[in-house]
């Protein structure tokens, strides 16, 4: 154990250790009962690299708020688009309905006027005709 620690320390001071070896070395030095420069340094490092409580949720607060705002914006746009489409359809339908009603009214008035006109001024009666002769080639009619 001690040999391994010493071997890692040598590599460490040559700047040749990997991050995993440095982690093992830190653990070994911090577990020692005796004071050493390494133990003091690694204790200080642990304090400096410690993260405060609740950092993860705090750090992404603005990202969450921005994503929420975007979702709300998209929802508002969608609802507005649907409402606008509906309003347009209703307007077109109502306009069309009004036009149809007017045409119907016009036809009724027209028919009424024709009827009144016919009543007031009956159509001239067909003149009496006297048919004297009809065959395949000749028709003789007298008005």
């Amino acid at each position: 154990m001690k040999e391994e620690r010493d071997r890692l320390l040598e590599k460490y001071y040559r700047g040749e250790t990997t991050q995993e070896e440095e982690r093992l070395l830190r653990e070994a030095c911090l577990a020692e009962a005796d004071a050493s420069p390494e133990k003091a340094f690694f204790t200080w490092v642990a304090g400096e690299s410690a993260l405060p409580e609740g950092l993860e949720s705090a750090v992404f607060e603005k990202v969450d708020a921005s994503a929420r705002k975007k979702r709300v914006r998209v929802l508002i746009y969608s609802v507005t688009s649907v409402a606008a489409t509906l309003a347009l359809m209703i307007t077109l339908y109502a306009g069309n309905l009004a036009r149809l009603e007017k045409e119907q009214e016009f036809r009724m008035i027209e028919q009424t006027l024709v009827h009144v006109s016919e009543t007031l001024q009956p159509a001239p009666a067909e003149p009496d005709m006297l048919v004297l002769w009809v065959d395949n080639d000749v028709e003789i009619i007298v008005n």
Binding site: E48, S49, L51, P52, L55, A58, V59, F60, E61, K62, V63, S66, A67
Partner: peptide, 29 residues
Amino acid sequence: RKLYPMMKRILGSEEETRDALQELMLRLW
């Protein structure tokens, strides 16, 4: 996890570092 200590060394306080990290994450988002 790596940025926090580095940014804290530059900015000094925990509160400022937290705010800066929030802003940085928003920019990256």
